[in-house]
């Protein structure tokens, strides 16, 4: 358990340091929202309708571009070797890395979401469902992404390949996340079913990611 928490605190600390990626990912998130807004134009009614889907898509893209940070740096400087050698259960370490990615890359986006939602004129009743759906759904992005990051570990410049492998698997999270956020924004009180499905997907990916990720790391290190 100590190793588990140690990896989380180390990765989060590294992420928040200058050049660690957290700030860049949050900036990328804001810029994606800006790009969408500019492309759509200053039609406030249209913007307010697509605010929640836009922010979900922006969060998904931000997660995609930050995935190669989960294992790549540790693989290059050799600390992944140490982690693999000293771990009593590699699966647990992979889970810790994925959780650290969520804290360092996704949590800041969720904190920035209300401000960006304001710029995209999201209806007032939509804030809470949007933030809630991101809180429940974005861990799935980190978990599933950790699998692709582990598979492409030994490849140079794997960024695009990670995106190709991961994006199709993100479809369920995106669908249920946007469904919950949209239902909430349109004032429908029952956005709970979509949220529950989203949570189920997150829990499922939490089981799948350590197993597949640890297997991929073992094959890449052997």
């Amino acid at each position: 358990m100590n190793g588990f928490l140690a990896i989380i605190s180390r990765d989060v600390a590294l992420g928040f340091k200058a050049g660690g990626g957290t700030v860049q990912t949050a900036l990328f998130f804001a810029l994606t929202a800006l790009v969408f807004a500019i492309a759509v134009g200053p039609d406030t009614a249209l913007l307010s309708r697509i605010a929640a889907p836009t922010l979900w898509a922006a969060a998904l893209l931000s997660a995609l571009v930050s995935l190669d940070r989960i294992f790549q740096a540790d693989f290059e400087d050799g600390s992944l070797d140490v982690i693999v050698e000293t771990a009593d259960l590699l699966e647990g370490r992979v889970l810790a890395k994925a959780i650290a990615h969520w804290i360092a890359a996704c949590l800041p986006l969720i904190l920035a979401t209300p401000v960006l939602a304001l710029l995209l004129s999201l209806p007032a009743q939509g804030y809470w469902p949007l933030v809630l759906s991101l809180l429940v759904g974005t861990p799935a992005l980190s978990f599933i992404g950790a699998i692709s990051a582990a598979v492409t570990l030994s490849l140079r410049r794997a960024g695009v390949l990670i995106a190709i492998l991961t994006a199709p698997l993100y479809a369920p999270a995106l669908i249920f996340g946007v469904a919950a956020a949209n239902a909430g924004a349109s004032g429908a009180p029952n956005f709970i079913p979509s949220l529950l499905f989203l949570g189920a997907g997150t829990l499922f990916s939490m089981i799948l990611a350590p197993l597949a990720g640890a297997a991929a790391i073992r094959f890449n290190m052997s």
Partner: peptide, 13 residues
């Protein structure tokens, strides 16, 4: 293992 989940989610969609 994800195909059934994708199928279900898209049907829901």
């Amino acid at each position: 293992v994800n195909i059934p989940i994708i199928k279900f989610s898209v049907d829901w969609w």
